[in-house]
Amino acid sequence: MKVLVAVKRVVDYNVRIRVKSDGSGVDTDNVVMSMNPFDENGLEEALRMKQAGIATEVIAVSVGDEKSQDTLRSALAMGADRAILIKADQTPEPLGIAKLLAKVVEQEGPQVAILGKQAIDDDSNQTGQMLAALLDWSQGTFASNAEFDGDAINLTRETDTGLETIKISLPAVITTDLRLNDPRLPKLPDIMKAKKKPIDIVDASSYGIDLSPRLEVVSVAAPAEREPGIIVADAAELVNKLKEAGAL
């Protein structure tokens, strides 16, 4: 079976972002970008499915501007067989992305689509569930383990109270949690080989989907800074301070 993996180019998780002074957004110029960490888990899972003989082909897809090709090259270096860039100068909202991915699913016919549970830039945590809804597929979200059993998956999810296992029939959407696996680091020869692997570039507008945003961004602001604190000498002083503050 084919497996589709969605990957997003985001500001690297180590970068402390800056809000633009005009309140229009977050400054992403000259900032280190990388693949959304949850998407790395998604790709790793697909690659393991291929190693286990469950998947035959792993297709990485990204929606974004020209530079998202870098992220797809990283995906190819990790081991994806080929890649599709859906070119959009303005990144669509999760609903728009889910609609585009649904089109790719129609064209490519994968049995499993794997997405990160959230992108660490807008933190929406929507796209995978939306894709499952549009396709009317089962969804296995926030996965920390996925075991294939014929045409179904026993999927363990991280929940607010522990773990939960559900059985989802194929075709299905999986969204990943960080403990699903440890993504591999591509080796130099793989990076070289990835340069020769194909990336199809398709214009987002060619799908005939209305991608106009439903949410108008009114402003983006930095959160209030916390007042600077103090260093105390020991536990006794700490307890005194907490009592003075009325917290204990």
């Binding site: 500001v11 402390r16 972002i17 809000v19 977050v26 660490i120 830039d121 807008d122 933190d123 439903r214 949410l215 108008e216 961004v217 009114v218 402003s219 983006v220 602001a221 930095a222 959160p223």
Partner: peptide
């Protein structure tokens, strides 16, 4: 119109839904 955190709470985005 609602405020929601983005970038791990390092920015707060105000959005208006249509």
């Amino acid at each position: 119109t609602f405020v929601r955190p983005i970038y791990a709470g390092n920015a707060l985005m105000t959005v208006k839904s249509s």
